[in-house]
Amino acid sequence: MTTVRLFNNDCVESMKELPSDSIDFIITDPPYNLGNFMKNRATNLVKMRENFFGAAGWDNLDSDSWEYSMHQFFMESSRLAKKGSSMIVFMAVIKVETIIKIAEKYDFYYKTTGTWHKKNPMPRNMNLHFVNSTESWIYFTYKTRTGTFNNEGMVLHDFIETSLTTSKEKRFGKHPTQKPEELLSHFIKILSNKDDTVLDPFMGSGTSGVVSKRLSRNFIGIELDKTYFDIASMRIAEEENVSIET
């Protein structure tokens, strides 16, 4: 039986409680630092989307404070990561360069930036400009230039295409930036092995935990917001043979 540990707390504070050199793979979707930026733009997102992330309050740091929080995140990640482990960070394209510069200060080796294409994006402002249908992801390895890569002899592109999160995956509640299980499964299969330990410091509604359990990985998830933490706990508890420690 693989194990699950869940923390309802600030991610850096909870990461400090974990042992050094204990994590095989980190996959996470931190705040993009776009809350204030989006609220100041002339969009109708709030009207079209009830739980628009820009109005949620957790993405409203000024740029300096956000960068400081990312430094803290990568510093703790470097302590926890095993040599040769990997990391995937989802990020807005306009913040990718900043994240790479911060990560490299803490011995994370930059591998590539890829694109997730949403096949059925919300057609907001479709008569005014191009519909936003992509997000970026950044791939790092820790203190080495190679890591686990289970491609099974196949050529894997840096372009991944899936539908948005299904209503079934949101049955316990909605998260404004919830990633689909298919997307996270793609990375967890390729960049980790069975019985490895996967860490998601910005767990949200727990998709990374659901997929990790399904793929026989140990999982550690951290989420500050109690509402989303409870959703994650319920989703992960549905998986078979799960032992959850909170």
Rank of each mutant, 00 (worst) to 15 (best):
P121K: 07
Y68V: 08
M154W: 14
E245P: 04
Y228G: 01
K189Y: 10
I88D: 08
R214S: 10
K170F: 03
P123W: 01
I188Q: 02
T246E: 14
N151R: 12
P180G: 06
C11A: 13
L191F: 15
F140R: 03
S212Q: 02
G221P: 08
E67D: 09
D24L: 05
F159T: 07
H175E: 03
L191H: 14
E50P: 01
A103H: 07
R235E: 01
V4D: 03
E161K: 14
R124Q: 08
V12Q: 04
A232N: 01
T141Q: 03
S77G: 13
V89E: 05
L215D: 02
G84P: 00
Y32G: 03
L156S: 03
F7I: 06
V93K: 11
I236W: 09
E223T: 09
N218G: 00
R217E: 00
Y228E: 01
Y109R: 12
Y139V: 04
D158H: 14
R235H: 03
Y142A: 00
P123N: 06
N125H: 15
G153N: 03
N241R: 06
F219H: 04
E135R: 11
S163N: 11
I244N: 10
E169F: 04
E152A: 09
N40E: 13
L191K: 11
E13F: 05
D64H: 13
M122F: 14
T115M: 15
R171W: 06
V46T: 08
D24A: 06
M1L: 12
N127Y: 14
E13K: 14
S69P: 07
I138F: 02
R41D: 04
E238F: 09
K168Y: 15
L156K: 11
R5H: 09
K213W: 04
G54F: 09
N51W: 07
D196V: 03
F229W: 04
R124A: 13
G204P: 02
P30H: 11
G221D: 10
F73M: 13
R124S: 10
V198W: 02
T165S: 11
V4W: 03
N36L: 13
S212G: 10
I27W: 00
F229G: 01
T162P: 02
M48A: 14
F73D: 04
V155P: 05
K82Y: 01
T197R: 10
V211D: 00
T144M: 12
D64L: 12
S63H: 12
I231S: 09
Q178M: 11
R235Y: 08
